[in-house]
Design a protein around this nucleic acid. Structure first.
Lengths: 262, 262
DNA sequence: GTCTATACACCGATAGAC
DNA sequence: GTCTATCGGTGTATAGAC
């Protein structure tokens, strides 16, 4: 967690405060633009697009409102510039590349754990942008869809590919790869969502990213049941064409044991 | 300009359309109020609080704007009424009660699967409210915090209690219960989020709730690693001093047994 | 109860001085 | 490049007729 909410006290009317530690002199064009973007991202991430006024942005950035519109023709342009800047980077490529070694070794724990750490780290150090993404997702903004396509979705497909490989190698059970990928991304992302949105006070569970990533990986790979109960459990999945042979087997074993269902 | 926000077909000016199938006659006071709340919930859930105007609400509800303010003193009051109505119901109590049987039998699969189904079903049939909750979470609305406290958090604690019980019975591994609970709620909730917010077209994975609940349960309880690799790495002690050792061990073992390949 | 008409603050965006 | 001043439009909320 970083400088997420450092609300400098409200600006005295008529005088523009600096929120960035700059000395107050003139800034180069590019720098000023970047400053506006930074402030806008923080405000948009806190109050949403329509909940933030260009006046507030200008004020907190220490410039007049006209300056904002000199750099960005419309408010929407400013919003898009923020999303565009980061959302389209497609950082997933780098992140996945860094896992290449672990993948080749078939080190599942390192692959999953590394991936989770990447996601958690990103959210922790770019909280504002993560919140902004949620806002834009709810609005159905087209730039979120681009982010989804180029990052989350690509990561899911990447993960599916790896899972499929490992299934063929006999290391992973024969379940639908996308279900596995979603389960793991779900654990990870939800953990971040709780930390930065749902319960920022971390009153329920506050653990370092590395440990969270490892625990989730452990759960994904080996589950939480002890060996003693490993054979029993699970109700029968309704008929699905797909290959769920492993599940079916455990179902068959479990069949004798129960009269379940509620 | 700023029309990126999913534009529902604009209402023809001058005449108020009915969006709820009512015939257009007068309504009783309570009914009218309910009608306004329903429309408002849909609009708020799509465009957010500040992104929705009282004019739009009145128009789509088929009444004049003044009527809205007769029933609700302010826009915020209307917003709060919606959240208050559902968020404070504390439905978790009922949901958990329904699992009592499975709990007493120690049928872990039924407990987890039932819980997941409850959550997934709720989101599927109350999509608008789920989206509204996300909006209110992002703006840190106090009524979301109440929802969080009375529902999600209570569910997490409930789950933790059950997990702890089962750990003492030797059925579940000795991990931090809250981590397990979060992992499972995470899989489930993220699945819903993808379905209703991130990727409503369901282009990646579209499976019925029952199957999703069962697959996630299976993963949580038994993991995705095959038996061949499963037994060799789980010796996790409760000691959390480093947490690394276990994972590292399994990594080392897994790395060695590589190359077997199909 | 329901409407029309309107008050009035504020928002996004622009013009033009320095 | 940066400001002050301001415009037209829209938003919430209210008054008062029917």
């Amino acid at each position: 967690m970083s400088k997420s909410i450092e609300t400098q006290k409200n600006a005295p009317p008529g005088r523009a405060p600096r929120n960035d530690g700059s000395s107050g002199g003139r800034m180069a064009g590019g720098e000023r633009r970047q400053q506006i973007v930074r402030v806008a991202m923080r405000l948009f991430s806190q109050r949403g697009f329509s909940g933030t006024t260009t006046r507030e942005i200008a004020q907190e950035a220490g410039v007049s409102e006209a300056m904002v519109f000199k750099h960005f023709a419309t408010k929407e342009d400013l919003y898009a510039a923020i999303l565009d800047h980061k959302a389209c980077a497609g950082d997933m490529g780098d992140a996945c590349a860094a896992l290449g070694g672990a993948m080749e070794r078939g080190d599942d724990a390192a692959v999953f754990s590394g991936l989770a750490q990447g996601v958690l780290h990103f959210h922790e150090h770019d909280t504002d942008f993560a919140r902004l993404l949620m806002h834009s997702a709810l609005q159905g903004h087209e730039l979120f869809q681009m982010f989804w396509e180029r990052n989350v979705r690509q990561m899911a497909r990447f993960l599916c590919g790896y899972i499929r490989e490992r299934q063929q190698a006999g290391a992973l059970r024969d379940m639908e790869p996308m279900v596995i990928a979603r389960a793991f991304i779900g654990m990870t992302l939800y953990h971040s969502l709780v930390n930065i949105i749902f319960d920022p006070q971390r009153s329920l569970l506050d653990i370092p990213n590395e440990r969270a990533a490892q625990e989730f990986t452990e759960i994904l790979l080996h589950g939480v049941a002890t060996q003693a109960t490993a054979g029993k459990s699970i109700t029968k999945p309704s008929g699905q064409k797909k290959g769920l042979s492993t599940v079916r087997q455990s179902v068959a074993i479990a069949a004798k044991k129960k009269k379940s269902r509620s």
